[in-house]
C-alpha cells in the first residue's frame, strides 16, 4: 500500500507575527513544529505499512525550514518526503493549498491512500483534506479513529463524529483525516533520527508541477483575512465556597443572584 501523508509545519509557540498587509502568518524564520494531529496521521500510516507492507511518503508545502518537520516525520518511520516550496505558493489559502497538494499527489502517482491530521492547530480549518479529495475526485472519510485494511481495494474506517460513530467502507484510492484518538504516536528513536537524514527528500517548486497560475498563491485564494489580532489575556478570580454543602449551596445562590443569572 502506497500512502501519502500530508503534513504541515505550525508555529512552535504562540509568539507569532502576521504580515501587516496580507494578514498572513509570517513563516520565515519561525521556529516550527509538526502539527500534532499530523503525528497521528503518520502513526496510522506507519502502522498500516507494518500490517500490509508498502511505503509511506510525506508531503508538505512551506519554506525550506519545513524540511526539519519532514525529517521528524521520517524519524517516525516514513520512507521518503516531498517538500513543495516556492515564492509562487506564498499566500495560498486552503483552496489553493489543496489544489497544489493534489497536483503534487498526481505527480507522485500510484497512490492508494492519502492521510491528513484532522486539522492544523494554527488555523483550525480542517479543510485541506476534503479539498484534496474533491480535487482528485476521491472518496473521503474525515475524523477517523480507526482504519482497517479490508483487501487490496478497500479500507474500513470508523469515524468519530462526537455523538455517533460511523463505520464506512472506502474504495481505494481514498482520502482520510485522522483524529488524535486514533493512536498514540511513537517517539522518534535515536537510531531512526540518525537514519532520517539519509532518506530521500525531494523539493519541488511551482516549475516542477503542472499548475494553473490563477489557482495558486494569493491569486488563487478567495479567502480574505480582514483582521488578525491576539485576544486580550483574560484573568478570572476563583472564589472558594464553604465546606458545608448547605452553606455552599446558599453561597452559590447568592452569587448567581448577585450576577443577575437567576
Amino acid at each position: 500500500m502506497k500512502i501519502v501523508v500530508c503534513i504541515k509545519q505550525v508555529p512552535g509557540s504562540n509568539r507569532v507575527s502576521f504580515d501587516p498587509i496580507t494578514h498572513n502568518l509570517v513563516r520565515e524564520g519561525m521556529a516550527g513544529r509538526m502539527n500534532p494531529f499530523d503525528e497521528n496521521a503518520i502513526e496510522a500510516a506507519v502502522r498500516l505499512r507494518e500490517q500490509v507492507g508498502g511505503e509511506v511518503v510525506l508531503l508538505s508545502m512551506g519554506p525550506d525550514a519545513t524540511k526539519e518537520t519532514l525529517h521528524d516525520g521520517m524519524a517516525m518511520g516514513a520512507d521518503s518526503a516531498y517538500l513543495l516550496s516556492s515564492r509562487a505558493f506564498a499566500g495560498s489559502d486552503t483552496l489553493a493549498t489543496g489544489y497544489i497538494l493534489a497536483q503534487a499527489i498526481r505527480k507522485i502517482g500510484a497512490i492508494d491512500l492519502i492521510l491528513f491530521g484532522r486539522q492544523a492547530v494554527d488555523a483550525d480549518t480542517g479543510q485541506v483534506g476534503p479539498i484534496v479529495a474533491t480535487e482528485l475526485d476521491l472518496p473521503q472519510a474525515t475524523f477517523a479513529e480507526k482504519i482497517q485494511p479490508l483487501d487490496a481495494q478497500h479500507v474500513v474506517v470508523n469515524r468519530d463524529l462526537g455523538a455517533v460513530t460511523q463505520t464506512v467502507q472506502l474504495t481505494l484510492p481514498a482520502v482520510i483525516t485522522v483524529r488524535a484518538e486514533a493512536n498514540q504516536p511513537r517517539y522518534e528513536s535515536p537510531v531512526a533520527i540518525q537514519q532520517s537524514l539519509t532518506k530521500p527528500l525531494t523539493t519541488w517548486t511551482d516549475q516542477d508541477l503542472t499548475l494553473d497560475a490563477s489557482r495558486i498563491g494569493q491569486a488563487g485564494s478567495p479567502t480574505i483575512v480582514r483582521k488578525v489580532y491576539a485576544p486580550e489575556p483574560t484573568t478570572r478570580a476563583a472564589k472558594p465556597l464553604p465546606q458545608d454543602p448547605k452553606e455552599a449551596a446558599k453561597a452559590l445562590l447568592d452569587i448567581l443572584q448577585a450576577q443577575g443569572l437567576l
Binding site: E68, H71, D72, A75, Y187, I193, L197
Partner: peptide
C-alpha cells in the same frame, strides 16, 4: 547538528 537537535527535542 540537525540529528542532535532532533534527539534533544525528542
Amino acid at each position: 547538528t540537525e540529528p542532535e537537535q532532533m534527539l534533544l527535542r525528542m
